[in-house]
């Protein structure tokens, strides 16, 4: 099994530790990581990405706080539970496909739809931790 690699985008405006948190969650959603799997060690991450060690440790602490991983002393950090994903063929997806079609028919272009969708997301998930 290969090691999960983090891609750090310094220009994204998203805090580096959050990028690691988000990419780990994405790996959990996609099934790239499953319970029992080991996350790369802090040494491996900093060696590959040249980011600050404390940033990696902060990201791992955050994942631990959310109950997704656990640190085992002297061994490393391991996945505790998986993240549920919306199955590709769920009713929610079908509704969204339908909605996107209607948005397009109403004359909205891709950017308009994305902006609208993001605004609604922000409104509905306001205050939620990422």
């Amino acid at each position: 099994m290969g090691v999960v690699e983090y891609r750090i985008d310094r220009r994204s405006g998203v805090a580096t530790y959050l990028q690691i948190v988000q990419q780990t969650k994405q790996a959990l959603r996609l099934g790239l990581l499953e319970p029992g799997d080991q996350l790369p060690t802090a040494r491996e991450v900093v060696e590959a990405t040249a980011i600050n060690p404390n940033t990696v440790l902060k990201a791992y602490r955050e994942l631990e706080r959310e109950g997704l991983v656990e640190a085992r002393r002297g061994l490393g950090t391991f996945v505790r539970r998986s993240l549920g994903s919306a199955p590709a063929e769920s009713p929610l997806r079908a509704e969204l496909v339908d909605w996107a079609g209607r948005a397009r028919a109403a004359g909205l272009d891709r950017d308009d739809v994305a902006a609208l969708f993001t605004a609604v997301l922000d409104e509905n998930f306001k205050g939620d931790k990422e």
């Binding site: 040494r43 900093v46 060696e47 040249a50 060690p53 404390n54 940033t55």
Partner: peptide, 30 residues
């Protein structure tokens, strides 16, 4: 830089590096 960070994480080394280019150090310094 990666090697420096690996050294630091393993041994708790304190590192001070100078530069006149901030962007060069932005991701690695706290």
């Amino acid at each position: 830089t990666g090697a420096l960070m690996a050294e630091a994480v393993e041994h708790g080394t304190t590192i001070v590096m100078s530069s006149h280019v901030v962007a060069e150090l932005e991701g690695s310094c706290d």
